[in-house]
Design a protein around this nucleic acid. Structure first.
Ligand SMILES: [Mn+2]
Ligand SMILES: [Mn+2]
Ligand SMILES: [Zn+2]
Ligand SMILES: [Zn+2]
Lengths: 144, 144
DNA sequence: AACAAAAATGAGACTTAATCTCATTTACTG
DNA sequence: CAGTAAATGAGATTAAGTCTCATTTTTGTT
């Protein structure tokens, strides 16, 4: 049984063609992908309404992370077991989005600071997101 | 000369009624405000198309920060001289958005970690954004 | 394998935040 | 107080995302 089917059965979600196609696509891209790109890659294979429904299904079983680019393009990425907590780096030249793991020590400091803020504002903080904006240098393949 | 007029003249932007009205509204709210809220507060005073144009003008003179809520509502806030670098805390119960200043020491650690990442990914990082998601506790006026 | 019930899909209508157009109004300059 | 450039209002337009509903697919049961 191949990867995408297993992902679905493991989570007791029925196996359908659109779900497999979307999963294959997401498994096939190393970096996060915009929903727009996903739409055009699956054009004529999965209906737009179905794509959005499938993405929603994947969110419901907690294997899809969704966020936005600085210019509000919707972006998705699979989060499977091997995909640990990380953040994102956005290039404003080529639009590339890169997964970034911060140093363990830094994440510890962040956790502590978050605890402080929970007290200061009487909040329960459940999640955080750190986004880095900039430009890749001349080594970037996309930017040339 | 009142505050909002001064903001415009200082930046060599012509003084118009819509610009003054939008600025007054933004100056009058302590926390960031959704564009939707702004629209309804200025209903019948500023046309929708004009509101978006004015917000764009304010961005161009670098006194407006725009970001999105976790559910993709567009949010704006003035950033004047007194408004230092900070981050945001979102309550998923009442929708409140709160300005948060992280401890100086933490921001220093973050800067260092960012420098490390610049090298690792051969990037020039120009900006960052840290968002905290959670719930305000029973002390929250909005949540009751 | 055939069947029935439940679930998912495709096609396209619909919603709505944001942008665009263009005729009219307003702001600045001398 | 012109004359010119800039800004505005009203409404059309665009497009990401949602919704509807008739048809198809999946899955569990004989
Ligand atoms: Mn990622
Ligand atoms: Mn703020
Ligand atoms: Zn780049
Ligand atoms: Zn709250």
């Amino acid at each position: 049984m191949d990867n995408s089917r297993k992902i679905l059965t493991d989570r007791k979600v029925s196996i359908t063609n659109p779900r497999i196609l979307v999963l294959e696509e997401l498994l096939g891209t190393k970096n996060p992908i915009t929903v727009d790109e996903l739409l055009s890659k699956l054009e004529n294979k999965v209906a737009k309404s179905t794509l959005y429904r499938v993405l929603n299904d994947l969110k419901n079983i907690n294997i899809l992370n969704e966020f936005s680019t600085p210019d509000n393009q919707s972006v998705v990425e699979l989060i499977l077991e091997d995909h640990t907590h990380h953040h994102h780096l956005f290039c404003s030249d080529c639009g590339e989005i890169i997964d970034v793991e911060m140093a363990k020590e830094f994440e510890n400091k962040l956790s502590k600071e978050i605890k402080r803020i929970e007290k200061e504002f009487n909040f329960i903080i459940e999640d955080h997101r750190l986004e880095l904006f900039g430009k890749c240098t001349d080594l970037c393949l996309n930017c040339k």
